[in-house]
Design a protein around this nucleic acid. Sequence first.
DNA 1: TGGATTACGAAAACTGTTTTCATTTTCGGC
DNA 2: GCCGAAAATGAAAACAGTTTTCGTAATCCA
Lengths: 171, 171
Amino acid sequence: MAPVKKFRELDENLVRQKEAAFADFIQKKGLKTTRQRNTIISTFFRLRGHISVEELLNQVKQVNPRIGYATVYRTLHLLVESGLVEERRFGDGLARYEGHSDVEHHDHMICLECGEIFEFFNPRLEALQESLAEENNFQIFRHRLELYGACKDKDACQKRKARGNAAAGAE
Amino acid sequence: MAPVKKFRELDENLVRQKEAAFADFIQKKGLKTTRQRNTIISTFFRLRGHISVEELLNQVKQVNPRIGYATVYRTLHLLVESGLVEERRFGDGLARYEGHSDVEHHDHMICLECGEIFEFFNPRLEALQESLAEENNFQIFRHRLELYGACKDKDACQKRKARGNAAAGAE
DNA sequence: TGGATTACGAAAACTGTTTTCATTTTCGGC
DNA sequence: GCCGAAAATGAAAACAGTTTTCGTAATCCA
Ligand SMILES: [Mn+2]
Ligand SMILES: [Mn+2]
Ligand SMILES: [Zn+2]
Ligand SMILES: [Zn+2]
């Protein structure tokens, strides 16, 4: 009867689940639980999207302003090592991080006009990659596929595209 | 009669063609022809593969040891701007450059064991990307697809894979 | 060939990230 | 609850790749 609240609850549960999984990882590695790490991961898991280190640090500082870059970097490495988080690089020079959503693997479309990032997954595409690898006697461990362009829906993107200052394709 | 030589000649012609195209570009931009730029581009076009700045500088220095990083970087930017060269990043932190081959666009398989890079192109894959973009009302300007894994042919890669120190998928 | 314009090269600056190191915190055993 | 070894923190320095600066030199058109 309260679908919005329901989603929020579910999301909150997922976050707690991830926090628990990370705690597990930390313990199994013989590392220590610290206030800073807890702050960082619970902040991170409550953010959505593809988060840069600076973005994360800014949020974290609102909870504990004494936390610095080093600890955020170190914690992100642990999160990646734990398998709960993936690092992405979309060519703007900064690493971005995202917690796994329910979709295990996905690829990205990046709008060069508005910066929005769309996620997609297509089994045929994945299978085709596999079969091409096979042909070349190559075994895929992982892959990255990024489509850079413009989302036609957005007003801003259409406008800029019409003015032609995007088609150049410059970074 | 001399197929190897023939290929070499053809290749040499292609290089000269590119050098001419770059000269054109320089002139149309109102820039100046210099000994350093000539050395750099003719060295670059005679190398094959995905060349890092350091690799290029090392080669260039054998012709003229006084040429420095700055000029190599600047010349590579011009080459990219001219459209004769493309920048690639395969995740090892360095930019790599490749002159267009006859194949206009291609994607890459990167062996994490031996570092070898295989190039491929598949129209079905490209078309599938297009149609997925279409579905999302997205217009692709460019894309990048990289398959990371192991080439099964190579002895070294097979051996290491068997020992299991590769499957972890760590960077 | 003069002279405005562009390029060069060494070194400094920059950016994102990693490391160092002195200090503090954690946590299992007492 | 305290001890002490082990691990974590944070400020600052170091690092790596790349870009910029700035004084000097080369280019090239009138
Ligand atoms: Mn994503
Ligand atoms: Mn290539
Ligand atoms: Zn995929
Ligand atoms: Zn492609």
